[in-house]
Measured scan of single mutants.
Amino acid sequence: ENVVSAPMPGKVLRVLVRVGDRVRVGQGLLVLEAMKMENEIPSPRDGVVKRILVKEGEIVDTGQPKIELG
């Protein structure tokens, strides 16, 4: 899985990584606000952040790609 998608609709509060960052499985990639709760979205695997496809403040839909890992 190279693309991390939104598990639920919500607002991107914070992006916790930058392009080029090495990430580990379970590491937080971003914080999504859904139903007035903050949810940290974890990396599904070890890898390197290739692209960030969302911006802080953006509203995302379920299944929308957010971060691409290499």
Rank of each mutant, 00 (worst) to 15 (best):
G20D: 04
P7W: 11
V15C: 08
P44S: 05
G63F: 08
A34I: 14
T62D: 07
N39H: 15
S43K: 01
V3P: 06
E58P: 02
V25K: 15
R22A: 11
A34L: 10
E68A: 10
G63H: 09
M8R: 08
G10L: 05
V49T: 01
V19H: 04
L13W: 02
V49L: 01
P9R: 14
G26L: 05
S43D: 02
N39F: 15
L29K: 00
V15K: 02
K50A: 11
V3R: 06
R51G: 06
Q27H: 05
G20L: 06
R14V: 06
L30M: 09
N39S: 11
G20N: 07
R24L: 11
P65M: 09
L32I: 14
R22P: 10
E40G: 04
D61I: 14
R45A: 11
S43N: 02
E40M: 14
Q64C: 07
V19Q: 07
R24W: 12
G63V: 04
V49R: 01
S43E: 03
V12K: 01
M35Q: 12
G10I: 05
M8L: 09
Q64W: 08
P7S: 13
S43Y: 02
V54I: 10
K50V: 14
E56L: 10
K11V: 11
V48R: 08
L30W: 05
L30D: 00
R24E: 09
P9S: 11
K50G: 05
K66M: 15
I67D: 02
P7Y: 10
R18I: 09
R24C: 12
M35C: 14
M8H: 12
I59C: 13
G26W: 07
R24Y: 13
R45G: 06
L69Q: 01
Q27N: 03
V31R: 03
K50D: 04
G28P: 15
P44F: 06
L29E: 00
V17T: 03
G70W: 15
V15G: 00
V12S: 00
S5F: 14
E33F: 14
E1R: 12
G63E: 06
G70P: 03
E58M: 10
V60C: 08
R18T: 09
R24K: 13
E56P: 12
D61V: 15
V4Q: 04
G28Y: 09
V48Q: 07
G10C: 10
S43A: 11
V48W: 15
G57N: 08
V17C: 08
M35W: 11
E68S: 07
R22Y: 14
R18N: 11
A34N: 12
V12P: 01
L13N: 03
G20T: 03
E33H: 08
S5P: 07
